[in-house]
């Protein structure tokens, strides 16, 4: 069974629905019509672009190009993590911490998946490597930005309590431990919920795509389970790393709370 190719006319019909929605929001003075259309245009442009890139990478398999694309994806995800935080670390830390955490978790887990679990040859076969990495980055990005946002915001709001604990001779780590635990929980909650709801409330996108493309449902389900577990591990480890180093960065070498290292976005 082969996938039915979509014509520009088919996509035009779907786009008409979005335009209809925009017209309705103009009528209701919601003030989001512009945003909606611009986001729609971005979707077209960005996906076409990545489609072209993937097409050429698939036809010309080379580790260098795949690595380059991976790094670009990582940097874009890092920028997104930074932009999503209300309070973020100043300077390179704001960008570097999230990016490094994603690099550690997403890249290592993608490598394990390609080399040990899926065992594809060569391991960097782009049909596997790029979508896998994309899903890892997209989800760890959520966890890390949620955890980091919670950490910085809580530290900002509870600065007096953290300092009161320091005054009692607590270590920096003890003084912020409850906030840190809370932030890790916040970062991991969406993926835990996604695992719990998978298949009952929602049919995960990847599985749906595979089934549409003609894959046998059980094969698609196995891949989806694999992806879910990899994403969960990646999100969890990435959130741990970023919240741990992020909380350390809020204190200096004399264990003083240094909130001037944060800036309001």
């Amino acid at each position: 069974m082969n996938l039915i190719a979509l014509s520009p006319f088919d996509l035009g019909l779907a786009a008409a629905l979005v335009i209809l929605l925009a017209l309705l929001s103009v009528q209701l003075k919601l003030g989001i019509a512009g945003q909606l259309l611009f986001a729609g245009l971005r979707t077209i442009a960005q996906l076409m672009l990545i489609g072209l890139i993937l097409k050429s990478i698939f036809s010309y398999v080379h580790l260098g190009w795949i690595s380059l694309l991976s790094v670009v994806m990582l940097l874009m995800a890092g920028r997104e993590v930074m932009a999503r935080q209300k309070y973020r670390l100043k300077g390179w830390w704001g960008f570097g911490l999230g990016t490094l955490s994603m690099f550690i978790s997403s890249f290592s887990i993608t490598l394990i998946a390609l080399n040990v679990i899926i065992n594809v040859d060569p391991w960097y076969t782009p049909q596997y490597a790029i979508p896998l990495l994309g899903m890892m980055l997209g989800n760890t990005m959520n966890g890390i930005s949620l955890g980091q946002d919670r950490l910085n915001q809580s530290a900002w709001q509870q600065r007096s309590i953290i300092e009161a604990r320091l005054m009692l001779g607590w270590t920096w780590s003890q003084a912020i431990s409850d906030i840190r635990e809370d932030s890790i929980r916040t970062g991991m909650m969406p993926i835990i919920n996604a695992m719990a709801a998978a298949g009952i409330v929602s049919l995960p996108g990847m599985m749906t795509g595979q089934i549409l493309a003609g894959t046998a449902p059980m094969e698609a389900v196995k891949y989806q389970i694999l992806i879910m577990f990899l994403i969960t591990a990646g999100t969890g480890f990435g959130t741990f790393v970023s919240v741990w180093f992020g909380s350390r960065r809020l204190f200096d070498e004399r264990e003083r709370l240094r909130l001037e290292r944060l800036q309001v976005n």
Binding site: L166, M167, L168, G169, W170, T171, W172, R254, E255, R256
Partner: peptide
């Protein structure tokens, strides 16, 4: 360490 100092110098 700073926390040891603060145990001795309470504020």
């Amino acid at each position: 360490p700073a926390h040891s100092w603060r145990k001795k110098v309470a504020f």
